[in-house]
Design a protein around this nucleic acid. Structure first.
Lengths: 121, 121
DNA sequence: GCCTGAATTTAGCCATGGCTCATCTTATAC
DNA sequence: GTATAAGATGAGCCATGGCTAAATTCAGGC
């Protein structure tokens, strides 16, 4: 599931920045209705990525946390890569979202090389 | 729809290389069952990208053809870009599939610049 | 302590994109 | 010309990821 990563990544982010992850914020940030966000969170819980009790905020399990970490790392790498090749910040934010789920390790490594060489320059 | 582009691109390719596009080949190349391919083709027809009659091969409409052309162009650009940054042919083929639907014009232009400068080198 | 508004959940709908199993056409070999 | 195999459809199932509308719970203000 592609959206699994988006959700855990965002939940992690919300916990860091807001102290907790609420459905209403998830829905807003993902541009989705609250019931939709709720349904997805239920799936995440079923699959062991989060824990949540009715009317309470959402927590990541160990499994969810490590998925979130990996996703953020990849996301970040793609984002920095896009900046390095001269894409605007706005576009880099939007496109890195789309791209991060579809690139292999090998391609990520190539991205990293580009970042490195543009750092040196 | 993301798969719309994959389908018209492949249909175009099959017509070029095989002379015609048959469901069975679509299904095989996309790694999908024939009924699934059939259902998608029905949708493509509903949306005006292809014409097809029962038990006959599939044709692209004007609309389908121009979508296929645009998709192939983008696909090709991403593919050449990946090669240019040192990704293997195999991976470039797989990843360009995934990436082509998620990059903006701006990013594609950045890709083109990289291709150009590596051509010169 | 209750009322009200915000957050959440429930119910029920839809499209896409998958599948299997069964049936029906079509084309080919004989 | 007919049997058979390949190709295409049909029927019916499932999960994901969307939505709206309605009901419920929770929390804060008074």
């Amino acid at each position: 599931m592609e959206s699994t990563e988006d959700y855990v990544e965002l939940i992690d982010d919300l916990i860091r920045t807001q102290g907790e992850a609420r459905l209403v914020d998830l829905a807003e940030r993902l541009g989705v209705s609250q019931p939709t966000a709720g349904k997805t969170v239920a799936r995440l819980q079923r699959d062991g990525f989060v824990t949540s009790e009715p009317y309470r905020s959402i927590f990541l399990t160990e499994r969810g946390k490590s998925l979130a970490d990996a996703a953020r790392e990849r996301h970040d790498l793609v984002y920095r890569f896009l900046l390095a090749i001269g894409v605007s910040q706005d576009t880099a934010e939007r496109d890195s979202e789309g791209v991060e789920h579809h690139v292999s390790e090998e391609t990520l490594q190539a991205f990293q090389r580009i970042i490195n060489s543009s750092d040196k320059a």
